[in-house]
C-alpha cells in the first residue's frame, strides 16, 4: 500500500498533462474479488451495528418496533444493579485474565523453548483445553469446583476436614472460579502464539547475549520480549476480544449465580433481548458495550497500526 502510494505520488506530476488516473480503478481485479467481503462488512457489521444503535432508542419488545422513547432504555440500564455488577465483573475478569494469560502463556512458551525433552507432548497437553468449547470447559469446571464431588470433596476425604474451596457458591470469589476455567482454556493458544514468536528469534541473538554473559532471564526481559512486540499485540487483541465476548463460560458454569454475582454484560444483553423479551433494553446494553470497546480500542489501534505508517 505504502509503496503503491509512493509510486503514485512520483508518477503524478508527469501524468498531470496526460490524464489523471482514477485510483478506484487501479488494481481492479483484486478489488473485484474483495467485493463480497466488503459487502459483508458494510451490510452485516456496519449495517447491523447502526440498526442496533437506532433501535436502542425504541421500546421494542420481542420484535423490533419503532416507538421512540429517547434515552429511556439507557436510563433504566444504568439504574439496574445487575448491569453495574456485570460491568464490575467484566473489569475484574478482564484485568486478571489479560495479565495471567500473558504471563502464564509466555512462561510456558519460554520453558518449552528451552529445548526440553518431550516438547511435543507438553505442547499438546497445554493446547488441548483450547480444543474444548467454553460450554464444555464451564461444565467440566463446574464439577471440579463442586464442593461435594470436586476438589473440596476430595481433599476432605483425604482427612483435611476443614478444607474449604467453594468459589462457585461464594458471591465474593465466584469470578475467580470463572477465571480459573477461562485461563485453563485460553492460555494454551497464547502459549502457541508466543512459542511461534520465540522460534522466530534468530539464534544469533542468543549467541550474542551468551557471549556478552547476559543472564537468560535478563535476555528474555530486555531483548526477547521487546523483539516480540507484534506477537504480544496479536495476543492482546485475541485475549481482549475473548474477554468482551465472555458469555458461554458463565452460562455453563454459574448461569450468573449465585444470585447475580457472576453476571457479565454479554449475558445481560442476551437475557434482555430473548429471556425478558425486551429488545430495546438489550440493544441499549450492547450499544454501551460497543461504545466501551470503541473508546478503548480506536485510540490504541490508531497508535499501534495507523501511527507508525505515517512516521
Amino acid at each position: 500500500m505504502a509503496i503503491a502510494e509512493d509510486a503514485g505520488a512520483r508518477a503524478a506530476p508527469r501524468e498531470q498533462t496526460v490524464r489523471r488516473p482514477n485510483r478506484l480503478l487501479r488494481n481492479l481485479w483484486p478489488k473485484f474479488a474483495l467485493l463480497p467481503m466488503i459487502a459483508t462488512a458494510v451490510v452485516v457489521f456496519l449495517g447491523g451495528t447502526l440498526w442496533t444503535v437506532v433501535y436502542s432508542f425504541t421500546s421494542s419488545g420481542l420484535l423490533p418496533r419503532r416507538n421512540w422513547v429517547g434515552l429511556d432504555q439507557y436510563d433504566r440500564l444504568w439504574s439496574t444493579t445487575k448491569w453495574i455488577v456485570s460491568i464490575q465483573n467484566l473489569a475484574l475478569y478482564g484485568v486478571f485474565s489479560l495479565v495471567f494469560t500473558l504471563v502464564i502463556g509466555f512462561t510456558l512458551a519460554a520453558l518449552l523453548d528451552r529445548k526440553v525433552r518431550g516438547e511435543d507432548v507438553f505442547r499438546t497437553i497445554f493446547l488441548y483445553p483450547f480444543a474444548l468449547s467454553f460450554i464444555v470447559t464451564g461444565l467440566v469446571w463446574q464439577w471440579i469446583l463442586n464442593p461435594d464431588f470436586g476438589i473440596q470433596g476430595v481433599v476432605r476425604e483425604w482427612g483435611w476436614e476443614s478444607f474449604t474451596f467453594n468459589p462457585l457458591n461464594d458471591p465474593d470469589i465466584v469470578m475467580f472460579g470463572l477465571l480459573i476455567a477461562g485461563l485453563w482454556q485460553g492460555t494454551g493458544l497464547i502459549m502457541c502464539i508466543m512459542l511461534a514468536g520465540l522460534r522466530g528469534i534468530d539464534d544469533d541473538i542468543w549467541k550474542a547475549t551468551r557471549v556478552d554473559g547476559i543472564p537468560t532471564w535478563k535476555t528474555y526481559v530486555q531483548v526477547i520480549i521487546p523483539m516480540m512486540r507484534p506477537v504480544f499485540v496479536t495476543a492482546v487483541v485475541l485475549i481482549a476480544s475473548g474477554i468482551i465476548k465472555l458469555y458461554d463460560l458463565v452460562v455453563a458454569q454459574t448461569s450468573g449465580g449465585p444470585g447475580i454475582s457472576s453476571e457479565v454484560p454479554a449475558k445481560y444483553v442476551m437475557v434482555s433481548m430473548f429471556g425478558a423479551q425486551n429488545l430495546g433494553q438489550g440493544f441499549a446494553a450492547s450499544t454501551m458495550m460497543l461504545l466501551s470497546v470503541v473508546i478503548i480500542l480506536i485510540p490504541w489501534a490508531y497508535l499501534e497500526f495507523g501511527g507508525r505508517r505515517r512516521v
Binding site: 458471591p171 454475582s261 425478558a276 425486551n278
Partner: peptide, 19 residues
C-alpha cells in the same frame, strides 16, 4: 405480568436470596 417484569423480579429475588 410481561416477561420483562418477570425477569426483573427474578433478578431482584435472586440477588436478595444470595446476599
Amino acid at each position: 405480568l410481561t416477561q420483562d417484569t418477570i425477569t426483573q423480579t427474578n433478578d431482584l429475588m435472586t440477588e436478595f436470596f444470595n446476599s
